[in-house]
């Protein structure tokens, strides 16, 4: 506690960085995953290609991706943008499949009646299909958020400061309070993001909690 009392400003700074490094990719990833997931649902052949490609990207270990990223996009190795891009790649990889599966799970009769009423293309996607897929997409987003927060800690190795710095510094200088603070702060951040997504998804799908329906 003494340690925390002396360093809480640093911890907050690092937590802010952490939120940025884990949160921005979440938004970027979601925005990119929607058209990909839609395409995957629309064309069977693209489904296989997108799912396989996403699976392959997700296979690459995070530390490796952080290190290789500058070689691919031509940035400096210590640039935080490497981490943001790498995390966005993971998020897209995870969410593309989720969005596709979420859209596929929209009942056929709902889609047909939407079409029969004159919805089509992008309007049907945003007006009918996506809202109904929100629960599935939110579930995927929760997984992505929690795993992003954890993966970002590895960025300390490539010199991008966030809560993971507390692990490394605590480990190197054998300060247990610092190491434990780092772990707890990371878990708290992950749970907070998770809770935020749960609340957001409830707000977006009022029909699921209305009138005794199972949430």
């Amino acid at each position: 506690m003494d340690w925390l009392a002396a360093h809480w400003r640093d911890v907050l700074d690092l937590a802010g960085n952490h939120l940025y490094l884990a949160g921005v990719p979440l938004v970027v990833g979601l925005v990119l995953a929607v058209p990909l997931g839609w395409a995957a649902k629309r064309w069977d052949r693209s489904y296989l290609a997108i799912i396989t490609g996403a699976g392959l990207l997700y296979t690459i270990p995070s530390l490796a991706l952080f290190v290789v990223m500058p070689l691919i996009i031509g940035t400096q190795i210590l640039d935080p943008i490497n981490v943001v891009v790498a995390m966005s790649v993971y998020t897209v990889a995870l969410l593309a499949r989720t969005v596709a599966d979420g859209l596929k799970a929209v009942p056929d009769h709902v889609e047909q009646s939407a079409t029969a009423m004159g919805y089509k293309g992008v309007r049907r996607l945003f007006g009918v299909e996506l809202p109904l897929a929100v629960p599935v997409i939110a579930a995927g987003l929760r997984v992505a958020a929690v795993s992003n927060v954890s993966i970002v800690t590895v960025a300390s190795v490539v010199g991008v400061p966030q809560l993971g710095n507390l692990f490394i510094d605590g480990f190197n200088r054998v300060i247990w309070a610092e190491l434990v603070t780092g772990i707890v702060a990371t878990v708290v951040l992950a749970l907070a993001l998770d809770a935020l997504i749960v609340v957001g998804s409830r707000l977006l799908t009022p029909w699921r909690t209305a009138g005794g329906g199972a949430a």
Binding site: V146, V149, S150, T153, G164, F167, G182, I183
Partner: peptide
């Protein structure tokens, strides 16, 4: 247990 950061766990166990 997903929420627990891998790196933190590794370092704590080693320490």
């Amino acid at each position: 247990a997903r929420a627990v950061p891998t790196l933190g766990l590794l370092l704590a166990a080693s320490l």
